[in-house]
Amino acid sequence: MEVDGGAGDGVSVSVAVVACTAMTIFYVAILYSPTLILRLPPPTSFKSYMTRRFICAGISTFVSLLVCAFILPIKSWETPYLFSAYGIHPHHTWEAVLLPLFLTSLMYTGSFLLKFFSLWTSLTEQSGQQIDLSLHGIKTVLQNFINWIHSHLCNISSWRLYIVAPLTEELVFRACMIPLLLCGGFKPYTVILLSPVFFSLAHLNHLLEFYMHQDSSFLKACMVVGFQLGYTVIFGSYASFLFVRTGHIAAPLVSHMFCNFMGLPAFFSPRTRMVSVGFVAGVVGFVYLLFPLTSPELYNDRIDNCKCWHRYCEWRS
């Protein structure tokens, strides 16, 4: 494990690692505090249960951001400078949203093709029926689309998957931990491999929940959660890579939301080989464009020939 410096550089290695570990434990432990510590009565519905978790996740995120601000050797507490410590920038926002989103979507080329073939099959099966292209038919399609959006907006699970979980996890495990580890002296690529470990450990509680609530064997629970942990390590490395390369928290955030929405990439379908071909083509495109589309010059006006182009070096006294 490569480390650039020690305590003299502003944040010691031990402080950085201990702080990241504490944030991970706190992020998970606080989810169970309403019933175990505060002794509140059990939630009466799934919605109230998730609302409690949203509040707990919000509190842990705020505390992590606050603690991180005190640990990092930040020279100025002015809002723009402080926000920049977490990768929150007003500039190059569109680049930080669209380019990583396009890059991530390449991994889902097979999924897009599978969706297209499913839609095409559905249309061909209805070929004997007349497709309504009238104004009324178009209004019906639009209304169905609006109803679909409304159903997601009213679904508490959708808020968890697409908003709360990505936002809080990216702020804690990327915006807080990566600056700490970098200022602790870890090299960028070491951080990209190390920070996902904390990210995956934060999902270990799913093992207990799956084992208890799904009435599954412990072996099956371990296999399911083990697969999930492997996926979180891979995605965590990618999200960390995006944050380190772009310096924008928006880059891993939109990618996280998109991946949660799409699920696992489709790489095979018994109905058509084109899904596998599309998946391979998407992977090739992803690898080819990975570094060009995450070049720091695309997301920052000035990098001053400094490896700490996202200004982490300026925090060191």
Rank of each mutant, 00 (worst) to 15 (best):
R302F: 14
Y32C: 00
Q228E: 09
L65I: 11
V280A: 13
H150P: 02
V15T: 15
Y81I: 12
F198M: 05
I25F: 03
A175L: 03
S60Q: 05
W94S: 11
D9I: 05
R311V: 09
S200P: 02
P188N: 06
H203K: 06
H92Y: 12
W159L: 11
R273T: 10
E209K: 15
C154M: 11
E314D: 15
F261G: 09
H89C: 01
V224Y: 12
M262S: 02
M23K: 05
S105R: 04
V141M: 07
F199M: 03
A29I: 03
S255V: 15
Q126K: 14
T190L: 07
T140L: 11
S158I: 02
I37K: 00
L40F: 12
L201V: 14
P73F: 10
V11A: 01
L290K: 05
L142N: 10
L103D: 05
Y211H: 14
S157W: 11
D9R: 09
L40N: 11
T104M: 13
S269A: 08
K187H: 14
P179C: 06
F210Q: 11
V97K: 04
L253R: 04
G8E: 10
T168A: 11
G58E: 06
L65E: 06
V172G: 00
L153R: 06
F145N: 11
V224P: 02
A250P: 01
F26T: 08
A29G: 03
F186D: 05
Q228K: 09
L161V: 07
G263H: 05
Y162C: 06
G5M: 00
L171K: 04
A250F: 13
F235D: 00
F26E: 03
T61S: 07
V11K: 02
P166Y: 08
W309R: 14
F286C: 12
H256I: 09
N155G: 04
M257H: 00
F235E: 04
A22Q: 04
L298P: 09
L82E: 03
Q129C: 06
D9N: 11
R302L: 13
W120A: 14
V15C: 08
W77F: 15
V233F: 15
L101S: 13
S276W: 07
T51L: 15
L293C: 09
P166W: 06
A175W: 00
G226S: 06
T61M: 12
E170I: 08
A69Y: 05
L72G: 01
R245E: 10
V277L: 12
H213D: 14
L181T: 06
C68A: 09
E125I: 09
F198I: 05
F241H: 07
S158L: 02
N260A: 06
S317A: 13
I138E: 09
V67A: 13
I156Y: 13
G6D: 08
H91P: 00
A281Y: 00
V97E: 01
F54M: 02
P100Y: 02
V28G: 01
T104W: 01
I234R: 09
C20D: 00
G230Q: 07
N300A: 14
G10D: 04
F199D: 00
L106T: 01
L289W: 07
P292I: 06
H150Y: 11
P179E: 02
S158W: 03
D304I: 03
